[in-house]
Design a protein around this nucleic acid. Structure first.
Length: 273
DNA sequence: GTGACCACCTGGCCGC
DNA sequence: TGCGGCCAGGTGGTCA
């Protein structure tokens, strides 16, 4: 499933493929993908816009157009492919952006969870979803004081709170397990009970894990692969996630799987006390 | 403000 | 073999 490193990989791939392309038409085959505005308005507004840049904020892809930002969240299985106009529309292709050179950017999403917003440039910081996002992992303001302030009222397990995109963006279920393992923190520990050392470890290891994952092209797990069908190599480097009943790479204890906040959670009881 | 729960979705897997 | 039920998971909405 796409988390920050996967989105970063997709962004870089798309930048090589579609920068400066003009959108001359849009086909929407499943309108629920378009969250804002209505699909009719979306279509009307985006036609004749040129893709000038592609950025990322948290897990959101940001296509910078002339007058708008097209925000795209891949959620579980969203993917982009560049196709020829003549290529048949596949079962799970829900939106296609037609360019002026007979190519189309197709959005494919098996589970239809992905969402798109088209927002005027001048409103981008004020409007949802970007207005509600927390700090990037590499933001210089992400420090112990910031996390303490955010966590002080959080009585939920740290595993749940670390996924909260209004605090730190980009961490999903896979990397949350890896960050807590490296930090030697039990996923069930309440967020407000973490001490300065543990908070510092979370900040430090979030950057380490995400940096490594980006360098490896993200993680291909279950059904996800990036655009162009590129498989991420970070899966081979996972330490605990999806390693139920395997040996802990640190102490040889058996890695267990539990549910925390409804999410599958893998950890070592011996290392993460 | 906080936390629990549910809906959105489909394909894969498992048990019967 | 075929069927039904469960599971996976990011996010937003609703309710207590």
């Amino acid at each position: 499933m796409p988390e920050l490193p996967e989105v970063e990989t997709v962004k870089e791939t798309l930048k090589k493929q579609i920068l400066n392309k003009k959108i001359v038409d849009v086909n929407i085959y499943y309108s629920n993908i378009i969250e804002y505005p209505s699909s009719d308005e979306f279509k009307k507004q985006i036609i004749n816009q040129t893709i000038n840049d592609i950025k990322r904020r948290g897990k959101w892809l940001m296509f910078e157009l002339d007058d708008y930002y097209l925000l795209s969240h891949l959620r579980m299985e969203g993917r982009y492919f560049l196709r020829d106009k003549k290529d048949e529309i596949l079962k799970h292709e829900h939106v296609s952006f037609v360019f002026d050179n007979d190519l189309e950017l197709r959005y494919l999403d098996t589970r239809k969870f992905g969402r798109m917003h088209l927002i005027k440039k001048e409103e981008i910081e004020k409007r949802k979803p970007l207005s509600e996002l927390g700090l990037e992992p590499w933001d210089k303001n992400l420090n112990i004081t910031y996390l303490k302030g955010k966590y002080k009222s959080k009585k939920l397990p740290i595993k749940t709170v670390i996924l909260d995109q209004s605090i730190i963006v980009g961490i999903g279920n896979i990397y949350a397990d890896e960050i807590l393992f490296l930090s030697k923190i039990n996923p069930l520990k309440k967020a407000y009970e973490l001490n300065d050392l543990e908070l510092n470890d979370i900040i430090k290891n979030t950057k380490i894990i995400l940096d490594k994952a980006i360098k490896s092209g993200g993680t291909t797990i279950r059904t996800y692969e990036s655009s162009e069908g590129v498989h991420g190599r970070f899966q081979q480097k996972l330490l605990v996630h999806s390693k139920e009943n395997e040996k802990c790479p640190n102490c040889n204890n058996t890695i267990i799987k539990i549910k925390v906040g409804g999410r599958g959670t893998y950890y070592c009881e011996n290392c993460q006390k």
